[in-house]
Write a protein that binds this DNA or RNA. Structure first.
Lengths: 205, 205
DNA sequence: TTGAAAAACGACACTGATGTCGTTTATAAT
DNA sequence: ATTATAAACGACATCAGTGTCGTTTTTCAA
C-alpha cells in the first residue's frame, strides 16, 4: 500500500496508530491492553503495527510523550490574572480530569508506571523521572514568581509545596480510579486542597 | 501427605501459603506475579495451591484481608498522649512505610486495585470499598474526638480532612513506588502534610 | 492393619498473546 | 509502462501461564 513514502506519511500513520492506542488504553487500561487490541482498533495488520512500535511498552512510552507534548503549558504564560486565580483554575482543571477519569489516560498511566518496578526498566526510560521533575519545576517557578510579586508569602519552600501538591493530585487520582468520583468525594477534597494551598502560600492576595 | 485433616491444619497450611504469596507479591508486584511463582515459593504443587485458592485474584483478596486483620488499630486506643501527638506518630509511621516501600505490599496493592477497573469485578469485592470507607471512618472519629476534647478546632469537616489525608498518603506512595523515596523527597513532603493538618485542625494544642 | 477419605502431586490440554518472516501489494521514480 | 523499494499483510512458531483431573500418597478412624 505504500513504499518509499514521504516522512509526513509515516508521521501521519504513526499518529494515527497512537490515537487508536490511546482509545484502547483509555478503555482497557495499560495492563489489560494488548498489541492485538491496538491492531484491531486501528484496523491494521500485525506487521504494520510492529513496523512502528517494537512492543507495548515502547508504544506506551511514545504515547506518553506524544500526549505530554500536546499539553498546553498551563503555568508558563502569565496572563492578566492573579497567581492565585491561575492556581485555582489549575486545581479545577485537575478536578475535571479526575472526575472524568474514565475518559482519560490517568489510570493507564498509573498502571504503566507501576509496571516499571524493575530498576532495570526505570533506567531505560529516564523520561519517566524527567517528567516528574519537570512538573515540580514548573510549579516551583510559578510559586516563586507569585512570591516575587508579593502575592504569596510561602510558609514552606516553594519546591516542597510543589511536590506536595503533586502528591495530593496523584493520590486522589489513584483512589478515584478504583472507587469512582462519588466514593472519594473529589470536589470536597479539592476544596481541602485549596485550603491547604492557601495556608502554605501564606496570606494570599 | 495429609488426608482428612483437622481444621487447624488447613488453616495453618493456608496461612503458610499466604506468607509465601506475600513474599512473591512484595518482590514482583501484583501484575507480574503468577500462581506458578507462589507454588515455587511455597514449595507446593499446582494441585495443592489450587485446592486453597481458585486463582490469583482470589488469592490476593484473601491476602489483603489477612494483612488488614493483622493491622493494629492505631487510632482506636486513646493513650495518655494528646491527639496531635498520636497524629504525628501515625504520619511518621506512614513515612517509614513509604520509605521502605520495597519491602511492602503497597505497590502490589495499588496494582491490584487498578486491575479491578471492571465495574463487574468491583462489585464482586465489596470489601475494597469497605476498606476505604473504614479508614475514612476511623480518621473521622479520631478528629471528632480531638475536637470534643477541645484540642482541635477544625476549619473543615472532619470527614473531609480524613479523605484528604488519605489522598496525600496514597499519592506519595504511588509516586514513590516508581520514582523512589529520594526522588520524591518523602520526608519533606511529610512535613508539608503535618503543616497542612495543623492548619486544617485549627489552632492545635 | 486395613481401608476410606482427602491432600498433594504433576502431566496435560488449552488459551491468548508475542514477535518473526516470507509474501503480496501499492507507489514513486525512471 | 516498468521496476525498485518498502509498506502492509497474515500465517506461523513459540511461549508462559492457566485450570483440570486422574493418580499417588498420607493419615485418621474403625
Amino acid at each position: 500500500m505504500a513504499p518509499k513514502v514521504s516522512d509526513e506519511y509515516k508521521t501521519k500513520k504513526k499518529t494515527e496508530l497512537l490515537h487508536a492506542a490511546k482509545r484502547v488504553f483509555i478503555t482497557k487500561g495499560y495492563t489489560r491492553a494488548t498489541m492485538q487490541d491496538v491492531m484491531d482498533e486501528a484496523g491494521v495488520s500485525r506487521g504494520a503495527l510492529y513496523a512502528y512500535f517494537d512492543n507495548l511498552e515502547h508504544l506506551y512510552m511514545e504515547l506518553l510523550q506524544f500526549e505530554d507534548q500536546q499539553d498546553v503549558q498551563f503555568f508558563t504564560p502569565i496572563t492578566g490574572e492573579t497567581s492565585w486565580e491561575q492556581m485555582t483554575k489549575w486545581v479545577y482543571k485537575q478536578q475535571v480530569e479526575i472526575e472524568n477519569i474514565e475518559q482519560t489516560l490517568s489510570q493507564a498511566n498509573s498502571e504503566f508506571f507501576l509496571s516499571l518496578k524493575d530498576q532495570q526498566k526505570q533506567q531505560s526510560y529516564p523520561y519517566i523521572t524527567t517528567r516528574y521533575e519537570k512538573m515540580v519545576d514548573v510549579l516551583t517557578v510559578f510559586f516563586a514568581h507569585g512570591t516575587e510579586t508579593g502575592e504569596f508569602k510561602p510558609q514552606l519552600p516553594p519546591e516542597v509545596i510543589a511536590r506536595y501538591l503533586i502528591s495530593v493530585i496523584d493520590g486522589l487520582m489513584l483512589d478515584t480510579a478504583h472507587l469512582g468520583a462519588e466514593k472519594t468525594k473529589v470536589s470536597v477534597q479539592m476544596e481541602a486542597l485549596l485550603f491547604s494551598l492557601r495556608a502554605m502560600l501564606g496570606p494570599v492576595q
